[in-house]
Design a protein around this nucleic acid. Structure first.
Length: 225
DNA sequence: GCCAACGTTGGC
DNA sequence: GCCAACGTTGGC
């Protein structure tokens, strides 16, 4: 029943309405409202978020090349996100329980890599942030939507989505091949990518990152390996 | 387009 | 609750 009617690859389509824009009136360019605390992952022990909020980091897959699913093009690249109104889109179509649980765990301002999958050059293309926490994915109730799930009831939705906002394109594209090279090396050395879900849970379309995140950001300033 | 990996279904 | 059949993901 919850057969993955679509690719788990999030593919947040420019789905007609839907797209709640709301909050974050601040449009594009991250001026993330003047006060954001830790702009660097590093959080100096000085004030600010003394409380609750430590950011979480994620990786979300989407297909940047056209492909029809039940007659609907599921293409959704980082450029497509950037072109959305307010540069925000809802991440619909996730039909895998583990991925859904990660969506539900996402908090406002968490950051996520935008990963291009099922394409000529797979890899990390950009950075996004969560601007709306999990709410029911309306496409599960729409009969002719590729992600329709007849087993889900409106009064107890099975599938959820978040809204993500474009933050930036990566300074350079971080290819799957490069990440894999590090993953292999780190398995031996104990480095940060040794358990990266991209390789250990290869089909999971929404993944949680920890030490991988900063390491991958640091690759932007290095030569491609 | 092939096919390995792997999640889901459904008979028993 | 096991597990073979099946279907999808997604790299290559």
């Amino acid at each position: 029943m919850p057969r993955p009617q679509k690719r788990l690859a999030g593919a947040a389509g420019p789905d007609k309405k839907g797209l709640s824009v709301k909050r974050t009136k601040t449009k594009n360019s991250d001026e993330t409202s003047g006060h954001k605390e830790n702009s660097s992952p590093q959080v100096t022990p000085d004030l600010k978020n003394c409380g609750q909020n430590l950011k979480n980091y994620w990786l979300m897959k989407s297909e940047p090349e056209s492909r029809l699913e039940k007659g609907v093009d599921v293409k959704f690249s980082i450029e497509d996100l950037k072109a959305q109104p307010e540069q925000i889109a809802c991440w619909d179509g996730v039909r895998n329980y583990q991925a859904r649980n990660f969506l539900k765990a996402m908090k406002l301002d968490d950051e996520a890599f935008f990963y291009h999958s099922n394409c000529k050059e797979p890899g990390i293309a950009g950075l996004t942030k969560i601007v709306k926490e999990a709410y029911p994915d309306h496409t599960q109730f729409q009969k002719n939507n590729p992600y329709y799930d007849p087993s889900s009831k409106e009064d107890s939705p099975k599938w959820f989505m978040v809204d993500v906002q474009f933050v930036r394109i990566m300074k350079r594209f971080i290819s799957l091949a490069e990440l894999k090279t590090y993953h292999q090396a780190h398995k031996a050395s104990g480095g940060p990518l040794k358990n990266m879900a991209l390789f250990t849970r290869q089909r999971l379309s929404v993944q949680s990152l920890t030490q991988e995140f900063d390491f991958i950001l640091s690759l932007e300033d290095k030569e491609p390996s």
